[in-house]
Amino acid sequence: MKRSLRLGTRGVIHRLAAWLLIFSLSSVWAESLQLPAPGPKDTCPVCGMFVSLYPDWVATVVYQDGHAHHFDGAKDLFKYLLNLPKYAPGHNRDDITRIGVTEYYGLSRIDARAAWYVIGSDMLGPMGHELVPLGSEEEAKDFLRDHRGRRIVRFDDVTPLLLEQLDQGKFD
């Protein structure tokens, strides 16, 4: 009896470890980023739209002092980050503690630096052609295929030229 209990416990532990590994690799169980939600009067500092009207697209920057700026999509978030003197005079990129985007499939808030972005798809955001955030490379590849996307980019791949091309509907 003691032997079968020990083997049973070992089997449970092995199964539990396998499930934990599977879940940790899945973006469905990826750790959500804790970010404040935009209020009804919060406007995007880039375009001026009311952010809370587009909860599926919200992106957020949080500073060390706790204040946050919200955006109606990843595209405006990147415009902001790439030109802080224009959109946030007096703010410094080094003072940013969290940058989050809403991932497409699970609608959870994830770290913008860890996201995978599809551009040139048939899915339009509040401001037109958008960087669609996904939680994993596999999800990005599926979205690219399912929504006729042009390519996948990462956080550091986003440039002012890429954002300009998105605004113009060009994805070369």
Rank of each mutant, 00 (worst) to 15 (best):
L166Y: 03
Q64D: 10
L5H: 00
Y63P: 04
V51M: 07
G66N: 09
I13A: 15
V153R: 02
V101I: 10
P36H: 09
F71M: 03
L16I: 14
V12Q: 10
Y105M: 13
G66L: 07
D95L: 07
W29Y: 15
L131I: 04
S26C: 14
N83H: 14
T102E: 02
L162A: 08
Y54A: 09
L53C: 00
A115K: 03
I110Y: 03
V28L: 15
H129F: 12
R15Q: 12
L25C: 15
M1G: 08
A140I: 05
D94Q: 11
L131K: 01
F171E: 00
M49W: 06
A17D: 15
G125V: 00
K75Y: 02
L144V: 10
L162T: 08
N83R: 11
D56F: 07
S24I: 03
H14G: 12
I152H: 02
Y87Q: 06
R150F: 08
L131S: 01
K79A: 13
N83F: 10
R150C: 08
P126K: 02
T102G: 05
A17P: 04
Y87E: 06
H91C: 06
L33C: 05
P40K: 00
D172Y: 11
L161I: 13
E103N: 04
G100D: 02
L35K: 01
A30H: 13
G73W: 00
Y104M: 09
E130V: 00
L82Y: 05
H67D: 12
D94C: 00
R151V: 02
L124H: 09
A115M: 03
R113Y: 08
V132G: 01
E164M: 12
V51F: 08
S108V: 10
L16C: 14
T159Y: 07
R3Y: 09
A37L: 10
D65Q: 12
R148Q: 13
L20F: 14
L77E: 01
